[in-house]
């Protein structure tokens, strides 16, 4: 099982190692704390954009309320991720807390896109290992970045595109699995609108709010149609 989980999470490895290292380098060069605090943050927080934001909050000696609000708003898109995993995580027992803790953008992408068999307990074990592998890559990246700081020899400029490529591949896979392109156009259009109307810090949450609002309207329209058809059938 570990071999197939490793294969499945390999794109995340290519994305998380350089991104984690970017965070580690930023942490070591901007702040005066011990190097191991960077991987420690990877262990207890486990959020890419969130941890990079945390470096600037730490540098500014931000107050605790500000830290809470900033981290919550930045990660607020995760509020919507859980909605599509309620059934999938049901009955996962002690693993469930960790599955929820580890729901980053990338873990969510893998867990909702991979093919699943009928054995729920087995699939939850796979989900658990995927999450743990991903966090492992992330923590190693944070540690390497903070340790090496600016002595990175290999020119890795641009390797973080692996995450963009992963999102593109997963969009295509979702499209093929669903057989309906409506949500893909909706997501792209919402992202376009948010990027025009909002500053970068609020674009993700803005786009997700637009997507959710339109899906709610879409739901009401479908339900409206179904209930009026139901009345016709009864009459």
């Amino acid at each position: 099982m570990n071999h197939s989980v490793f294969r499945l999470t390999l794109p995340i490895l290519f994305g998380y190692l350089p991104l984690g290292m970017a965070f580690g380098v930023l942490f070591a060069t901007q702040l005066d704390y011990a190097w191991w605090v960077a991987p420690l943050m990877g262990v207890v927080i486990f959020a890419g954009a969130g941890q990079i934001l945390a470096v600037s909050l730490l540098a500014a000696n931000a107050g605790m309320v500000e830290v809470f609000v900033a981290m919550f708003v930045l990660n607020a898109r995760h509020l919507f991720y859980g909605l599509s995993l309620l059934g999938q995580f049901r009955g996962a027992g002690w693993r469930k807390v960790y599955l929820i803790f580890g729901l980053t953008d990338e873990t969510y992408s893998l867990l909702t896109s991979r093919p699943r068999g009928p054995d729920r307990a087995y699939e939850q074990t796979v989900d658990f290992r995927i999450t743990a592998f991903n966090q492992g890559y992330w923590v190693i990246g944070c540690a390497l970045g903070a340790l090496l700081a600016d002595n990175v020899a290999f020119n890795s400029t641009g390797i973080e595109f692996a995450l963009v490529a992963l999102f593109i591949v997963l969009t295509i896979e979702q499209l093929k699995a669903l057989g309906d392109s409506f949500p893909v156009w909706l997501g792209a259009a919402a992202a376009g609108a948010a990027m025009i109307a909002l500053p970068p810090a609020h674009q993700l949450i803005g786009a997700i709010a637009i997507v959710t609002a339109i899906l709610l309207l879409h739901y009401r329209r479908i339900r409206g149609k179904q209930s009026s058809e139901g009345e016709v059938n009864r009459g």
């Binding site: 499209l175 669903l178 949500p183 997501g187 919402a190 899906l215």
Partner: peptide, 9 residues
């Protein structure tokens, strides 16, 4: 619908 839309965005 949400996962496909979120992935695209």
């Amino acid at each position: 619908y949400l996962p496909a839309a979120v992935m695209a965005l």
